[in-house]
Each structure stands twice: as C-alpha cells, then as structure tokens.
C-alpha cells in the first residue's frame, strides 16, 4: 500500500493548520511557533516529493535560522506581551477574507487544470509509450539526464541498469518499459544532494555565485540600518 496519500494529507493538513494559526494568534511568539510547525510540515511534503536536499535546507534555513531571527527580534523589541493588533473593523476583515477566498478559488482552478494541455501533460504522454525496445525519444531523454548530472554511460550501465533489468544488459538492450523505469529511477534521484550539487555547480554556477553577493549586500545593509548612531555633540 502506498503511504503517500496518507502522508500528504497529514502533512498538508498540518501545514494549513499551522498557517491559519500564524494569522490567528494575537501573540507574535505563538505565531512564530505556528510558523515553525508549517515549515516542518512542508519539509515533510518535500521529502514526499523526493526533494531530500531541499527538505533539509528547509529545516536548517527556515525552521532554524530564519525563525530564530524572528523570535530574536520579537524578544528584542519585547513585543511578546504587547498586542499591537487592535481589532480591525469587522467589515475590513470580512472583505479581506472574501478576497482571499476568491484568490484561493482561482489558485485551485489553476492547480486542477495544471496538467491539461500543458508541458507537464505532454511529457507524461510521451513517456507513456510502451512495448518494443528502447525508443529514440527515451534515448534522447537518457542522454539529457546523463549530461545534466554529468554521469557516464558506464555508470548508468553498471549502477542503474541492473536495478531495472538483467545485470548484463546495457542501455541499448533495454525494452521500452525497462527504459521508462530507468528514466523514472534516475529522475526520482534528482532530489539527492549529490545530484542537486552537480547541477548547482555546473549549470547554475553563476547564479549561485551571485547569491553570495546578495547575502553580502544584505549583511552590509543590515549593519548600516541598525548601527547605533554616534551620540550627537550638544553645543
């Protein structure tokens, strides 16, 4: 039995409850705690999606670093006990919720129709061909994967082909069904740290380096913003 639907419902519900709690609590400290819950739930969802690396980063960066920063500022400004939110006028709140619902409906509509006539659907359709030996399109797909992750054909032949077919087969000998499984296996592994690392340091090297500049700029900006001003000389 596939556990994914159950886990999805569990994590999804947790994330939603956490999110609603974030905007529901009056005390920002509670909101922060609720947000951490949401983040953890989302990390679970990421694992369900096979994105192991992202899930780990989610916990470390969001639930760890960012939330600590939030809590730190709340403590620093001593906002925990003070409720700055006087009740908003009911009509404004109601209007906001109605807007939100319309927005959510549109979002769900998009989600429901996402795989109709889109690129996603096309890829699914194409990979669904069955029977016969490995097709040219599948070979092409394999080559693409090979290039993206900088694997050699030997590595695929020795490490991955045995997982889906007889150990002495090479890629060219696979049947179409076997090839599809092979591709799915390879794609399923893309969330692995090794795979993400390969892509990050080859195809996305330049953007990756640029993020360091962004962080540096943020660093300097923060220092400039909160630096204590020199006490002015009173003459």
């Amino acid at each position: 039995m596939n556990a994914e639907p159950i886990l999805f419902i569990a994590f999804g519900a947790l994330a939603l409850i956490g999110a609603v709690a974030v905007i529901g609590f009056k005390n920002p400290v509670y909101s922060a705690i609720a947000l951490i819950v949401t983040f953890f739930a989302q990390a679970g969802l990421f694992i369900l999606l096979g994105a192991h690396f992202v899930a780990a980063v989610q916990v470390i960066v969001y639930a760890g670093a960012i939330m600590v920063l939030f809590l730190f500022v709340i403590m620093l400004l001593n906002l925990g006990s003070v409720d700055v939110d006087r009740p908003k006028a009911g009509i404004a709140k109601g209007a906001a919720v109605i807007l939100g619902i319309v927005f959510a409906l549109e979002g769900v509509y998009i989600a429901v129709n996402a795989s109709k006539g889109t690129a996603v659907a096309r890829v699914k359709r194409e990979s669904a061909v069955g029977g016969g030996s490995i097709s040219a399109m599948q070979l092409k797909e394999l080559n693409k994967i090979q290039a993206t992750y900088q694997l050699t054909r030997d590595e695929i032949d020795t490490e991955y082909v045995p997982k889906v077919a007889a150990a002495d087969k090479t890629v060219e000998d696979l049947t179409a069904d076997e090839a599809r499984t092979l591709i799915q296996t390879l794609q399923g592994e893309m969330g692995k740290t090794e795979r993400i690392g390969t892509v990050l340091f080859s195809k996305f090297l330049l953007p990756f380096e640029v993020t360091s500049l962004i962080l540096l700029a943020a660093l300097i900006g923060v220092i400039a913003l909160v630096k204590r001003e020199e006490p002015k000389e009173v003459s």
Binding site: G12, L16, T38, L45, A104, G107, A111
Partner: peptide, 11 residues
C-alpha cells in the same frame, strides 16, 4: 500539491 500550495499562499 498545487492546490495545497494555492491554499497556503492564500492564507
């Protein structure tokens, strides 16, 4: 997943 994403976003 997309529907869940939309709902979270709306919240």
């Amino acid at each position: 997943y997309l529907a869940l994403s939309a709902l979270l976003f709306t919240v």
